[in-house]
């Protein structure tokens, strides 16, 4: 699941532009992930200029290591 560190988002929309399934809603100062639509491809995490997005699954992977 993609997580948003809400109070750090700059609402620039870069993640929205690359999302292949249109699973990110962005308003003037409000961002939310539509988890039912999201396919956890993680590219929004990579492209975010200020690293506001993260994946809870990644954290689990790290634990397994």
């Amino acid at each position: 699941m993609i997580l948003v560190k809400d109070n750090r988002c700059d609402f620039c929309g870069t993640c929205v532009a690359v999302c292949p399934v249109d699973a990110i809603e962005l308003r003037e100062a409000d961002i939310s992930i539509i988890h039912d639509t999201c396919i956890d491809c993680d590219i929004c995490i990579w492209v975010c200029p200020i690293d506001v997005l993260s994946s809870d699954e990644k954290k689990e992977e790290v634990k397994h290591d």
Binding site: G13, T14, A17, V18, D22, W46, V47
Partner: peptide, 26 residues
């Protein structure tokens, strides 16, 4: 509507951009 280009998607157009075609800027 800018880089997000959601209005086009609402009309059923393909606007999602490949990673190669997007620079992450600051």
């Amino acid at each position: 509507d800018g880089v997000e280009s959601r209005v086009g998607r609402m009309a059923g157009m393909r606007t999602a951009t490949k990673l190669r075609d997007m620079d992450s800027g600051y």
